[in-house]
Amino acid sequence: MEQVRHAVEIGELRAGDQLPPIRKIAEDLVMNPNTVARAYRELEHEGVVELKHGLGAFVSHSVVARTSVMRKAHAIVQTAIERLLSLALSADEIRRLVENELALLRSKK
């Protein structure tokens, strides 16, 4: 799921590109097919892909708009990290801080 999102964000996958069928991904990665299907549904929910019944999953057209949002987000994260580094925090510490905050937000949701 992360791989697909990343591929879309960096433009490796373009709008309209077809993603491999659930079956193939499950077999290639030796993963539970229901887990793969759920990942696809989450990606659809996030607007990254569109599921067309009987045809498969395609990279969503609205994702182009999303790409520009991602660029802005990228800039924010970049400045934040630069400031944290100037406080002499290590990369590991920064990662833990971010993950922790995210986990807290998630558990409050």
Binding site: I22, R23, A26, E27, V30, M31, N32, P33
Partner: peptide, 13 residues
Amino acid sequence: EDVLRELVALSAS
């Protein structure tokens, strides 16, 4: 790994 892949394939297809 082979067996798990075949089991996943039976489940998926």
